[in-house]
Amino acid sequence: MRSQTVGWLFLAPTLLILFVFGVWPFVYVTVISFFHWNSFAADPTMRFAGLDNYRELMFDKGFLMALWNTLKFGVFAVVSQVILGYLLAQLFMKNFPFKGFFRTVHTLPLMIAPVAVGATWRLMTVPGLGPIPYYLDKWFGYEFLISRYVGQAFMTTVIMDIWHWTPLVTLTLLAALSSMPKEPFEQAQIDGANRVQTFWYVTLPMLKPAILSAVFIRLMDAMRTVDEVWMLTGGGPGSATRYIGLYIWRVVFPKTDYGYGSAMSLITLYLTIVMCWLLYAGLVARRDLKRPE
């Protein structure tokens, strides 16, 4: 009995923090999402809206467009990061001159705040000042103008995200590769497996948990990306880079539409959870289900 009390006492600070910063805001947002509440409306008080906000979401072209943009952004960025991250991790498994130096430099982007990353990329891409449009024009005659061309803006945000977060994937996979036992590889070699077969049947299955962790983390990050893109494009041009986080921010803060913004946040959270669950179910659970056979 006494040990239980002590246990709860030790847990209390954690539970308190979890409640104040996790549970309570979630409940608050959930409640608000069922109200019309805009502090600059003719009637600035909270008025019960039932499911109105959720119904409106289903027909909100801006929201659906932002969601689609985010999904595209997430898929492009995360797939590229995993592929590049794996290749870099394999590279760092080998010995070459100045390996330590390159490994350190490679991880530097991780230490930079997203706002600073966005600002740096903005400086590099702003017409009339940035080196990227200057040299693309000088060397290839290519007009690079992310404030006007939607495709260029979208791809630049993807490349910026890849540049910023690939090192995280590399380090995750490097740790996984470093801790792999040698025996399965030796066995594969004895069995005559070529490099592709070794990768497909030995390396990949053993890397799967690490890859999944990296994908989950990066996918969730991509779904809530705001600061980098805000600094680089402000969500433009047009709606090209107005990702869901940015859209929610605009609805909640400048537009002060708290009820609608809360509904949007909850739906986004729900979709993120569903996506991760589907990914997990598709890649892990199915295999686990097969295992007893």
Partner: peptide
């Protein structure tokens, strides 16, 4: 108007699409 930000945030995204030619 007491609704500057609210209206601006509603119409500006459409306006940007006119600038990009969409």
């Amino acid at each position: 108007y007491p609704f500057h930000n609210q209206l601006r945030e509603t119409v500006a995204p459409i306006f940007y699409q006119a600038i990009t030619g969409e």
